[in-house]
């Protein structure tokens, strides 16, 4: 019993209790050096995306054939220009915007669908079988193939890429949420809410879901990496962003013809993709460790 703890122990306990779980998680996350690197990269990317017009001096889609394929560190174009004379720096910066927006839309839609299916499947035993079989069905397709199929149906555009990626995110999210719901719904406080006459919907949304946020946050972060990578892949394949949109995958696709003469046209967007995906993955990893209550022992 908490009251029986001796004076010293009580003091320690109280000192610990003062911190909210959010603060504790943040602190633990900041102890993880790799995650901090990831956070910095993400912060830079977000800044680039928001302040893109202020950070660039050239229109990312404006062609100027007189200065095509300038090498890196050229005058006025520090990352050079592509075969149409478009400033690579501007294109990379505006590309950050596209990647982030598509990633956020795809992940949010995926979470939305996944959470609904997961809640319903976890809470109602009768629906569980049906929903989880649908999820298994979605799982049985290779991700990129499923996305290609959906784009083939909907047509090529960035919006459709976001939708395709979100549909592909639904099954994993649904499974994660369902698992959490299955364990949470057996807790006594859910029974207590039922005994107070709360409706199923209320219990699911207001009482079970807040308990499942930790795995959902980790999932969303990791999924951002996948979504950005997939957007780039699909655009590389010509199924996503169409020229002249400054999308990283599309930039690599256009640049590969000039691989030997102007390698920076493929390497720079490649590095941008790599850094972003790396950043979201390490932050996701760090979050998972930080949220895990078993790490308290440290």
């Amino acid at each position: 019993m908490a009251e029986a703890v001796p004076a010293l122990g009580a003091k320690i306990k109280r000192a610990k209790k003062k911190e909210s779980s959010f603060l504790v998680t943040t602190k633990r996350l900041l102890k993880n050096k790799l995650a901090v690197v990831g956070l910095v990269i993400i912060a830079i990317q977000i800044a680039l995306a928001i302040f893109a017009p202020l950070l660039t001096f050239h229109d990312p889609v404006k062609q100027n054939l007189k200065i095509s394929e300038l090498p890196m560190f050229s005058d006025g174009h520090w990352l050079g220009t592509d075969n149409y004379g478009r400033d690579v720096w501007s294109r990379v910066v505006f590309g950050a915007r596209i990647s982030l927006i598509v990633g956020i839309i795809a992940v949010s839609l995926g979470l939305f669908g996944g959470i609904i299916l997961g809640l319903l499947g976890g809470y109602y035993q009768k629906l569980d079988g049906v929903i989880m079989r649908i999820v298994d069905l979605l799982f049985s397709f290779p991700g990129i193939l499923l996305a290609m199929l959906i784009i083939a149906i909907l047509g090529t555009s960035l919006v459709n890429v976001a939708i395709a990626i979100s549909i592909w995110s639904i099954p994993s999210c649904a499974r994660i949420v369902r698992g959490s719901v299955l364990s949470i719904k057996e807790k006594e406080y859910i029974m207590a809410m039922k005994s107070l006459g709360a409706s199923d919907l209320r219990i699911m949304v207001k009482h079970i879901l807040p308990n499942a946020t930790a795995p959902i946050i980790v999932f969303a972060t990791m999924r951002m990496a996948t979504a950005i990578l997939s957007t780039a892949s699909l655009s590389y394949l010509g199924l996503g962003a169409q020229p002249p949109t400054p999308e990283w995958g599309a930039m690599i696709s256009q640049g590969q013809a000039f691989m030997w003469t102007s390698p920076h046209l493929t390497i720079i967007p490649g590095i941008a993709i790599m850094l972003t995906v790396f950043a979201f993955n390490v932050v996701g990893d760090g979050l998972r460790d930080a949220i895990d209550p078993n790490m308290d022992i440290q």
Partner: peptide, 8 residues
């Protein structure tokens, strides 16, 4: 200990 929701 368990009849109150820990996150609310």
């Amino acid at each position: 200990m368990t009849a109150l929701n820990p996150v609310l």
